[in-house]
Write a protein that binds this DNA or RNA. Structure first.
Lengths: 231, 231
DNA sequence: GCAAAAGTGTTAGGTGTACACCCATGA
DNA sequence: TCATGGGTGTACACCTAACACTTTTGC
């Protein structure tokens, strides 16, 4: 063992957990059950264990709050301002995860005092959590601009109006229907089903599923479509 | 004080310090002067102090190694695999900095066993430092694609061939002279001087300086030019 | 005069974006 | 029959990328 003379820090992981329902983006927000700031609205957080990597800790924490396994996470960054946490000097590493709200176990809401909050109505969160959320969204938007993100966010079968609504929610902007569908079609990674969703319209919208094999092939070839022009 | 029962971690900061000279990109690499892995090639690293933010620690560490003040840093990310450091469980936060090699104090090289290594010839670095470097380059490329990065890397007066060479070094690709210049001209953020650099050619290339005021104005307007198409 | 690097414009093809109407169905 | 949301194609402007020759000057 080396470095024994160095200062040690409390390290936390915080999770920005996003879901999509009724054409709106939601963030999983909890009420802190411990001091300081007990009762205030906060992202899902936890502390890595000594035998866990940061990524593993993030996956575990998100699992504890959502009951979901096999989630993909991506790191947002490390937050290390001195007074960012009122409780102590804490360095926090933020991760985001996109999850399918249909698979989410709603029972966990109650046990964790968690709720899905529409991303438009997120108020003040504790500490620097608003900044974390903002940073996560930036990364998600960048990602979504070049690849068809959100297969994690959508149910397995989804309609094109749904898919488009997801993009509109991510960018908070209206997208032309025809342009959106043209681009999707170009990519050729969706499979149209014979089945229709008749909940949202009388005519009904065809369901699609995602052809993962084709998508992975395209990625390997370094493929990228610019979905939305944001840069 | 709260969270006292949580595990504490040794936290490090590592710096990817990039410079540009003779049309090539260089990384500042040191030989570790402490165990473990003493004598092996490594990025510049250090440990944040209790009263320092992570950003401050990164600035301080880079200052210690380069003598430079007023450097801009950007976080690359946190690295938290369990066995990433042989010495102990260490979580490291990486930062990159682009510096002007002309202003760099060469005396520090010797006192820190540091040397500038051409980015093409970086061999194996200790621990996960190769991955950090790769991640930093990804961020730098993304940044350079949409804004005229590298005013930090270039001397105050620079020529267009130099500026282009910088982009070629960042992307490791050849760029058409006329296209590059057209784009630069469109941005209208350079000022041509009457003076010429005659070191690299008989004809001589005009020096330019960067018009920061115009650049900042453009940034405020949410301006972005796609310099190079990489996505 | 000649080698070596600097400097300079145009064009064709592709991509982004704006845009309007018909279709299917339940009520 | 009508109101509602689903589905479809094109034209124009702009941007990207390809491309070749002249200029200057030290040797």
């Amino acid at each position: 063992m080396y470095y024994q003379q160095e200062a040690k820090f409390i390290v936390a992981v915080d999770g920005i957990i996003l879901g999509f329902r009724n054409n709106e983006l939601y963030v999983l927000i909890t009420k802190r059950i411990f001091e300081p700031l007990k009762g205030k609205r906060s992202l899902m957080g936890g502390f890595p264990r000594i035998h866990e990597s940061l990524d593993e800790a993030a996956v575990r924490v998100i699992h504890e709050y959502t009951g979901l396994k096999n989630i993909r996470i991506e790191q947002v960054g490390a937050y290390g301002d001195i007074d960012r946490d009122l409780g102590s000097r804490v360095i926090s590493v933020a991760y985001y995860a996109l999850i399918n709200m249909e698979q989410y176990d709603d029972k966990l809401n109650r046990s964790h005092h968690a709720e899905w909050v529409n991303i438009k109505n997120i108020g003040k969160l504790v500490l620097d959590h608003n900044r974390m959320l903002k940073d996560a969204l930036k990364i998600i938007r960048r990602r979504a601009a070049t690849r068809p993100i959100g297969f994690d966010l959508l149910p397995q079968k989804f309609t094109l109006p749904q898919f488009q609504a997801l993009y509109e929610a991510i960018y908070q902007t209206a997208i032309d229907k025809r342009n959106f569908r043209n681009r999707i079609q170009q990519m050729d990674i969706l499979e149209k089903l014979d089945e229709k969703d008749k909940l949202n319209s009388k005519k009904g919208a065809y369901y699609y599923i995602f052809n993962k094999k084709k998508y992975d092939m395209l990625l390997e070839q370094g493929y990228s479509v610019s979905f939305i022009h944001i840069f």
